[in-house]
Lab assay of single mutants.
Amino acid sequence: GSVVKEKKEKALIEVRPYVEYYNELKALVSKISSSVNDLEEAIVVLREEEKKASEPFKTDIRILLDFLES
């Protein structure tokens, strides 16, 4: 629970300088966080969101995924 939350919060802070739609990304992460149990599940849902998103938000999600998977 809290470790996953920390990882996601740290990821958002780390990617902030590189993303165009930070507030939207943060809102998406919050929405996903409330419906998943762990980081792996969150990553799966983020990948689905990435497929549906259009640029440049798609790239923002990709940047976040790269950080979460590192």
Rank of each mutant, 00 (worst) to 15 (best):
V44Q: 12
S33F: 15
E49D: 02
A53C: 05
V15Y: 02
Y18V: 14
K10C: 15
D66G: 10
K8H: 15
Y18T: 14
K8M: 15
Y21H: 10
G1P: 12
K52R: 11
G1W: 00
S34Q: 14
Y18P: 13
D60W: 12
Y21K: 06
V44A: 13
K58M: 03
K5H: 14
Y22N: 02
V45I: 11
K8R: 09
D60R: 01
L12R: 01
Y18I: 15
K5V: 13
Y21T: 02
R47M: 10
A53M: 04
I32A: 04
L65K: 03
I43S: 03
V19E: 10
V29Q: 01
K51N: 12
A53W: 07
N37Q: 11
V36D: 06
E69M: 09
P56H: 05
P17F: 07
F57P: 01
E69H: 10
E55I: 07
K8N: 15
E14N: 07
V36E: 06
V29G: 01
N23K: 06
T59N: 14
V4R: 04
L25W: 01
S2E: 11
A11M: 07
E41F: 05
L68A: 02
S30E: 15
R47P: 00
K7H: 13
L64S: 00
K52C: 08
A11I: 10
S30G: 11
S70R: 09
Y22W: 14
K51V: 09
K31H: 09
I13S: 13
D66Q: 10
L46N: 00
D38A: 07
E50C: 13
K31G: 09
T59C: 08
K8T: 15
N23D: 15
N23Y: 13
S34T: 11
K26I: 15
V19H: 03
I43T: 05
K5T: 12
S33E: 10
A53H: 13
V44I: 10
K52W: 07
K8I: 15
A11D: 04
Y21M: 15
S34E: 14
K10I: 14
A27C: 05
E6D: 14
K31S: 13
D38N: 12
A11C: 14
D60S: 05
L25K: 00
T59A: 11
E50S: 10
S30I: 12
S34I: 09
A53D: 01
R62Q: 10
V19N: 02
S34F: 06
D66V: 11
E40H: 09
L64R: 00
I43D: 01
L64W: 02
V4S: 10
E55S: 03
E48A: 09
V4C: 15
V19D: 10
V3F: 01
L64K: 00
V36C: 05
V44S: 12
K5A: 13
F67T: 06
S70G: 13
L12F: 03
K26C: 07
K8A: 15
V3G: 13
E14V: 08
S54Q: 12
Y21I: 02
